[in-house]
């Protein structure tokens, strides 16, 4: 109301600072810009700090850090191989379990289930993603590990015991248990992102296949899934990035043994769990720098995979038309 009377006066009176601020889009722009820029700054600072706090390890061990199996606090000699091996192995097995089941569920939820059923089911599966990882770890210690020790691993051993993968003593904790809990934790990501990708496939794609006489499954598998392929791969990469960086649940069931073992029943270690267990007790500088170096490796690994996942998801959602 007041502004209606203002223009006549404001031509004679110099514009007050308050009025300039009140009208000042440039100030609002600047303030919000600063907050946005702070995100960029803090991320750059994160990368810089990780890099500088790993210098001692880089200087002392060089590239040998990645191939060495040493983890000796007494002599301050450290190598990353057991951890990189454990991280990659557990994530890989987790994907082998989670991908078929996850994509299968996504197909069911997007293509077959009536929407009255699919909505609540999807919501429940998304709730799985909200459960804190320490709770998965708690459940894994008291349910999964005994189950693996008494039922699953003896059964695998009796059938596939001739291969080095499934031989050796059974403890319950170890690579396979860690991979199982990782698989359970990556389900929700694979399912919800794959489902989105499948829902983005144009309706005509299904109708054309069905009209040509394809069965429901053939229409889904040969016409719909190829269309959503990139998005499904994106969901798998997203699940992989999550599995690689997962800390608590894995730390609680992997057995914490810094060595490389061929047997999936054996105890191992991952990058994230060795940091979780030993960082607070890092006595010497070189030990601290070695752990930060491991953190840097994990950081680079996950951002590369995340970037790939986002690119793939972007490519499919841009192409899809119907919802």
């Amino acid at each position: 109301m007041a502004s209606a009377a203002v223009p006549a006066e404001s031509t004679v009176r110099p514009v007050s600072l308050w009025r300039r601020v009140w009208k000042g889009d440039s100030i609002a722009h600047l303030v919000t810009f600063l907050f946005a820029a702070s995100i960029l700054l803090i991320t750059l600072l994160l990368i810089y700090q990780l890099f500088t706090h790993a210098t001692l390890a880089r200087q002392k061990f060089g590239w040998g850090f990645f191939t060495s199996q040493a983890w000796d606090h007494g002599n301050d000699v450290y190598g990353a191989l057991p951890f990189i091996y454990g991280t990659c192995l557990t994530s890989l097995i987790a994907l082998i379990i989670a991908v078929p089941i996850g994509v299968g569920s996504a197909i069911f939820l997007s293509e077959l289930a009536p929407s009255k059923l699919a909505g609540p089911l999807t919501f429940m599966i998304e709730l799985l993603a909200a459960v804190p990882s320490v709770i998965y770890g708690l459940l894994a210690i008291f349910t999964l590990v005994p189950l693996m020790r008494t039922v699953v691993e003896p059964a695998l051993k009796s059938v596939l015991g001739f291969t080095p993968l499934f031989s050796g003593p059974i403890y319950g904790v170890g690579y396979l248990s860690a991979a199982m809990i990782l698989a359970i934790m990556t389900f929700p990501f694979i399912i919800s992102v794959s489902r989105e990708a499948l829902l983005d496939v144009p309706r005509e794609q299904r109708e054309a296949a069905l009209a040509l006489g394809a069965t429901r499954w053939e229409a889904t598998w040969d016409a719909v899934v190829p269309f959503a392929k990139l998005g499904i791969f994106g969901s798998i990469f997203l699940g992989l990035a999550r599995a690689l960086g997962e800390t608590m649940a894995v730390t609680m069931v992997i057995g914490n043994d810094p060595a490389v073992h061929a047997s999936l029943f054996a105890s191992g270690y991952t990058i994230a769990s060795v940091i979780a267990n030993e960082f607070a007790e890092a006595g010497s500088d070189i030990f601290l720098h070695s752990l930060v170096m491991l953190g840097l490796v994990l950081f680079l690994l996950t951002i590369i995979i995340n970037a790939a996942a986002r690119l793939l998801i972007l490519l499919t959602t841009r192409r899809g038309t119907a919802r």
């Binding site: 995100i39 960029l40 803090i42 991320t43 600072l45 994160l46 700090q49 990780l50 706090h53 990035a241 690689l244 960086g245 997962e246 800390t247 994230a272 940091i275 979780a276 960082f279 752990l291 930060v292 953190g295 994990l298 950081f299 996950t302 951002i303 995340n306 970037a307 986002r310």
Partner: peptide, 20 residues
């Protein structure tokens, strides 16, 4: 950058807070 920060494993965030 925000996406990148979102994808950083939580343990690495812990290292950063420890350092600074």
């Amino acid at each position: 950058t925000a996406d990148l920060l979102n994808g950083v494993p939580s343990i690495v965030i812990g290292i950063f807070a420890y350092i600074v």
